[in-house]
Design a protein around this nucleic acid. Structure first.
Length: 871
RNA sequence: GCGGGCGUAGUCCAACGGUAGAGACAGAGGACUUAAAAUCCUUCCAGUGUGGGUUCGAAUCCCACCGCCCGCACCA
């Protein structure tokens, strides 16, 4: 940027100089520190929280957007008289720190805390209104000590269980994953296909709360419907029947007199064609020892399991075990298969197959030539001839081919079957959930150690609370895969807390999602010697506004809801705080164009090579790579990502334009829930606007001088000012930051266009502009506020109130439609009665011409809005 | 396949069922300047994805279809 002559250089707003100055001023005055204890109990509380970052080392534009939004809320609420809690911390445990340690031969803590320092500096450069005195990282022993205390309390309250289970094993990260962390059959972090393993693990009993977590979703009206739907589906409640089939006498499985299945369609019991169990079903395992080929089949299923399945569009495969079950009513005999499409995780891991009314069962039956009997007949079909082809019929209808059920509707038939089976002691109605217990054991170092000891004599013994924290040892190595805690020479050898004999520590650590499931509560009293202090959590929780990415719609948000319930049960939270987040806002992503070229590798494979925005320039002939002057392909606008190299570094933007510009641009244009595209021209436009505001303010400061009388009258400028107050206030409250920004542009334009307003009205307009902008561009606002002669800071200024008298007009311009088409405009008094408005409309030339002397069929007058004349 | 969302100027986006345009970006012209930058002024551009319906009146409500995005996905 070329510097200009001295005069205009003086006039320019220098963000690089102003921003650190005001950040220092805020910090010195403790503007954002929220007091504990009595605090500001006279003021209503407001807790605003953005999802805390993982300390990867650098902030990205997604952070800028997220924290800019939260900051607008925090600053606006503070100006509106709320006692605001707006803290920040670090979600600091997890695999990347271990990976970094492996690569660099250093310690995860070194890497993590260095990253935290770097990111704190970057976040502070954004000028966020954060109470940094409450900062903590989840890897601080002070934090995980309290998490271990929670774990022990949960254990005591039967909220935890230790059980052997088939778990998802990530072969790359060499650790267990929760169901929620398996995406398309692959580990959420490593992307490697997940394997099944049998391990003894700690589980939080989240399924005990399945019904509560589901029902309470209806009360979360401050949450996006989308997220509630996703959680509802995840919990996956279904009503059905758990029933038992008698297994016919055989040599193969003499210990198995019956097979238990779960069904939501007991009405189709007479349509049964086969029974099937999961390859992981105990019966399958028992049979595998005796039935030739079954072991191989099960092994094949296990391997295919999850990854290829998606590609191959799930071909149904089965293995006839030779076993047969008896129909409970007809006595008919049906084969039992082991089938690859039966999930062990759901229901009982076994089904009865009704081919005619379930697509999967039909595919399977056609393949193995099994019986297909339609038992539900649609209303418009002939029961005598109704049959299915290759498409199962799943719609409503009446029951056929089903003995005592014939003629019933589906619901009645379900009940009839359930009644008869339960009377015979062969089944009962059950409610089933898709939600599984939350397995939290991880075979990793960089996590909170699970505070239990294994003793040969006493079994699993909880560590004593006074011995917390169970600290991670510092002297560990990462030169080999696996868990360093396991192979540490001394760490795990401890006396049993119960009997004092030699025993072994648990070497598993907790899933990092545990860390983030209660940090919002810890912020209320971050230095307490207990996990929470009731006075503080009772004052602050629930979080009034939580802001973060949609990617946490299930995992983090569901776990946190469970944790709040568990903490309430163990006395760490009020029973009123079981919903930790009163309102949730999920912001969109930050996107950018991509720049690439097709390049052939040595093997002759064509692939894309990407370039960063810094490496290319847009010219008249298209977009070129600077280093070689050759064109690049401008690709789709997608989420900023390292792999596509379409990232913009916030630090560079702040250095170039200032934090206010970055914040302003992030809030402009796109609605916050939608994706926003970062463009160079957009950023420049934002910077230009801030310069313009600065210029208007300094010009106005000259005009206003020292005059300080209150503005009076009803000038256009005053009306515009007060309308902006109303609109911006409403827009910010409703998370319509893009509209608030547009309103501020409107007010800015009005001030720029204003010629003759009196100094008082001009002062009012300019000061309003500054205060309305302050939540978004706080540094510029302070600088401008000072330029107008204020000694106090704008953060201390109260939010303005709109004067209702200035929001209404005396007269309004109303369009006049004839048959829905606009033909004229009339100007009438705002409170003119309908008949006056009607008369004025009908007196318009254009209307009279169309009326042609006749009288209208109807005249609709919407006061203040429109007149429609119907001929 | 199921569920949710979105389609409005060249672009991003506004519009209680009531004049399609608040605002921004980009473009064009002009002013200032030796020139450029910066700044200021003026200005072009769509009738709302498509087809129906409800209504005095539809971008908005309803139905169908098309396109894009996001979840979930053998859940018995």
């Amino acid at each position: 940027m070329i510097d200009d002559a001295g005069v205009s250089r003086m006039a320019r707003y220098d963000a690089g100089q102003a921003e650190p100055k005001w950040q220092k001023a805020w910090t010195e005055k403790g503007c954002f520190e929220t007091r504990e204890g009595a605090g500001h109990a006279d003021r209503p509380k407001y807790y605003v929280l953005e999802m805390f970052p993982y300390p990867s080392g650098r902030i990205h534009m997604g952070h800028v957007r997220n924290y800019a939004m939260g900051d607008v809320v925090a600053r606006t609420k503070a100006a509106q008289g709320f006692d605001v809690l707006h803290p920040m911390g670090w979600d600091a445990f997890g695999m990347p720190a271990e990976n970094a340690a492996m690569e660099r031969g250093s310690h995860p803590a070194t890497w993590t805390y260095a990253n935290i320092d770097a990111m704190r500096t970057q976040l502070q450069a954004m000028g966020l209104a954060i109470d940094w005195s409450r900062e903590f990282a989840t890897c601080d022993p002070e934090y995980y000590a309290q998490q271990q205390a929670l774990f022990l309390d949960f254990l005591d309250a039967n909220l935890l269980t230790r059980k052997s289970a088939t778990v998802n094993w990530d072969p790359v990260d060499m650790t267990v994953l929760a169901n929620e962390q398996v995406i398309d059959g692959c580990g959420w972090r490593s992307g490697a296909p997940v394997e099944k393993r049998e391990l003894t693990q700690w589980f939080f009993r989240i399924t005990d709360y399945a019904e509560d977590l589901l029902e309470a979703l209806d009360t979360l009206d401050g949450w996006p419907e989308k997220v509630r739907v996703m959680q509802r589906n995840w919990i996956g409640k279904s009503h059905g029947l758990q029933m038992r089939f008698e297994i016919e006498a055989n040599q193969l499985a003499p210990d198995w007199p019956e097979l238990e299945v779960y069904t939501t369609r007991p009405d189709t019991l007479y349509g049964m064609g086969f029974a099937a169990v999961s390859p992981e079903h105990p019966l399958a395992k028992a049979l595998a020892e005796k039935v030739e080929g079954l072991t191989a089949f099960i092994e094949e299923c296990r391997k295919l399991g999850t990854s290829e399945e998606a590609l191959e569009k799930a071909e149904k495969k089965g293995f006839d075990t030779g076993l047969r079950v008896k129909h409970p009513f007809s006595g008919e005999s049906f084969p039992v298969y082991v089938a690859n499409f039966i999930l062990m995780d759901y229901g009982t891991g076994a089904i009865f197959g009704c081919a005619a009314h379930d697509q999967r069962d039909l595919d399977f039956a056609r393949k193995y030539d099994l019986k297909v009997v339609p038992v539900v007949c649609p209303a418009d079909a002939d029961p005598a001839s109704f049959d299915v082809g290759d498409e199962a019929y799943v719609g409503p209808g009446s029951i056929i081919n089903s003995d005592f059920l014939n003629g019933m509707e589906i619901e009645a038939a379900k009940n009839a079957v359930a009644d008869r089976l339960s009377a015979a002691g062969m089944g009962e109605k059950t409610t089933n959930y898709r939600l599984r217990d939350w397995g939290v054991s991880r075979q990793r170092y960089w996590g909170a150690p699970i505070p239990v000891v294994h003793c040969d004599a006493c079994g699993v013994v909880p560590e004593k609370k006074e011995n917390l924290p169970v600290r991670l040892p510092d002297d560990v190595t990462f030169d080999r895969p696996g868990n360093p805690l396991e192979r540490h020479p001394t760490w795990k050898h401890v006396p049993c807390p119960a009997c004092g004999k030699d025993a072994t520590r648990e070497t598993d650590t907790m899933d990092t999602f545990v860390d983030s499931s209660w940090y919002f509560a810890r912020f209320c009293s971050p230095r307490a010697e207990t996990p929470t202090t009731r006075a503080e959590v009772d004052r602050w929780l629930p979080v009034d506004q939580y802001i973060g990415g949609i990617e946490h719609a299930i995992l983090h948000l569901l776990y946190s809801r469970f944790f709040a319930r568990a903490m309430a049960k163990t006395g760490h939270l009020s029973p009123d705080s079981v919903e930790p987040f009163k309102a949730l806002f999920t912001q969109g992503m930050v996107t950018h164009e991509t720049y690439s070229r097709k390049v052939k590798t040595a093997e002759g494979i064509e692939r894309d090579v990407f370039f960063t925005p810094d490496e290319v320039s847009r010219g008249e002939d298209g977009t070129m790579r600077d280093s070689d002057g050759q064109p690049v392909t401008v690709g789709p606008t997608i989420k900023m990502s390292k792999s596509k190299r379409n990232t913009i570094d916030p630090e560079a933007i702040i250095a170039r334009y200032g934090a206010d510009t970055a914040r302003w641009f992030m809030l402009s244009d796109s609605p916050p829930e939608r994706d926003v595209e970062w463009t160079e021209s957009g950023a420049e436009g934002a910077a230009r606007h801030l310069q313009r505001v600065w210029r208007l303010v300094t010009e106005a400061a000259d005009k206003i001088g020292a005059s300080s009388g209150a503005a009076t009258g009803t000038s256009d400028l005053r009306k515009t000012t007060h309308r902006a107050i109303r609109a911006v206030t409403d827009d910010i409250a409703a998370f319509r930051f893009n509209k608030a920004v547009a309103q501020i542009y409107g007010l800015t334009n009005a001030i720029a266009a204003d010629k003759g307003s009196d100094p008082a009205a001009l002062r009012e307009a300019v000061e309003t502009l500054i205060i309305l902008m302050a939540p978004m561009t706080p540094h510029l606002a302070e600088e401008a506020w000072a330029a107008l002669g204020h000694d106090a800071m704008v953060v201390e200024a109260p939010w303005p109130e709109a004067d209702p008298d200035l929001l209404v007009d005396d007269t309004v311009t109303m369009p006049v439609q004839v048959n829905g088409k606009k033909r004229a405009e009339i100007v009438v008094a705002a409170d003119a009665p309908k008949d006056v408005v009607e008369k004025a409309a009908l007196a318009e030339d254009a209307v009279m011409k169309l009326l042609d002397g006749g009288s209208p069929k109807k005249v609709i007058v919407v006061p203040g809005r429109i007149v429609n004349v119907v001929l």
